[in-house]
């Protein structure tokens, strides 16, 4: 009798499972197609970079990376990121505070405006600064008279990068702070904390993972941006060449191995970004689970 109930239960389970999933054969075929697609579109390009970088041996690889122009490009890339990211963190924090903590007219419109740079082509992002600061630009004659260089120099590269990466921190923080609500901040203020104290001791600990997430995405894009920087850089070797632009020059000179060697460096940067991103997602989900349990 017990056996019969068991059998019936198992049969019922099978029906329940069959109702929400596909037969094993279909599952296998779908998984295989998805994996083949991902291998062709994601794994093969990575493999090409690694194979291309090591095509002339390890010694050539390190030579390509330690060339003076490559080092100068790496330095410039880091410098641009070091200036850009803090600026966009300040912007992101201010925008998220204003948009998430308060209700005011035109809030939705402002949120859309913050996202705007994402729908502008990188080439156009560079072009707009050429139109403002370039020799024929609005401020061009004045800048020339005062011997200030913005386009085809560091300030132009930084401006274009700031434009392209400005939404990253803000769009991470706005929904997060909106979801968390104002209760804790209200309590802190009513108990006598100042605005800064509330921000440092209440808000910041609550948003730290989201902030870090935005910073990482912003940094990765700032170091990897190509189109916008390409327009305002002027491609002066050793001076206004970032790592992605250096890759382009090497490639167009048919120095493929060197181009892939520098690319592999940027690819490792991408992998670090992905790893950090997943670490943060994991941390965040762990913390929310803990608070949900307690």
């Amino acid at each position: 009798m017990a056996g019969a109930t068991g059998l019936r239960k198992r049969a019922a389970n099978q029906v329940a499972r069959a109702s929400v999933t596909e037969p094993p054969l279909v599952r296998g075929i779908l998984t295989a197609i998805a994996l083949i697609f991902l291998v062709v579109f994601l794994i093969l390009p990575i493999t090409v970079i690694v194979a291309g970088a090591l095509a002339k041996g390890v010694q050539f690889y390190f030579q390509a990376l330690t060339e003076p122009v490559a080092l100068a490009a790496a330095r410039l890339t880091l410098l641009v990121a070091v200036i850009t990211v803090p600026l966009n963190v300040l912007f992101g924090l201010a925008a998220a505070w204003a948009l998430a903590k308060f209700d005011f007219v035109g809030k939705k419109f402002l949120t859309t405006l913050i996202d705007l740079p994402f729908s502008v082509s990188p080439v156009i992002s560079g072009l707009i600064y050429v139109l403002v600061f370039g020799a024929q630009g609005v401020l061009g004659p004045w800048l020339q008279a005062h011997d200030i260089k913005i386009v085809f120099a560091l300030p132009g590269i930084v401006l274009a990068t700031v434009f392209v990466t400005s939404p990253f921190v803000a769009r991470e923080l706005i929904p997060l702070m909106q979801a968390q609500g104002n209760e804790e901040e209200n309590a802190a203020i009513i108990l006598g904390a100042s605005g800064w104290q509330t921000f440092w001791r209440v808000t910041l600990p609550n948003i730290k993972w989201g902030l870090l997430y935005g910073v990482i995405l912003c940094t990765a894009r700032a170091m990897g941006e190509f189109g916008a920087v390409s327009v305002v850089s002027g491609h002066i070797r050793g001076l206004t060449n970032t790592l992605p632009l250096h890759v382009e020059i090497l490639y167009n000179e048919y120095s493929f191995t060197a181009a892939f060697a520098v690319s592999s460096l940027l690819m490792m940067l991408a992998f670090v970004t992905l790893a950090l991103k997943h670490f943060i997602e994991w941390q965040h989900s762990r913390e929310t689970n803990l608070t949900a349990e307690s």
Binding site: L38, G224, L266, L269, A270
Partner: peptide
């Protein structure tokens, strides 16, 4: 890996 195109510089 699905996020790779977000993280990989476009020139690369």
């Amino acid at each position: 890996l699905v996020d790779l195109p977000f993280a990989l510089p476009t020139a690369v």
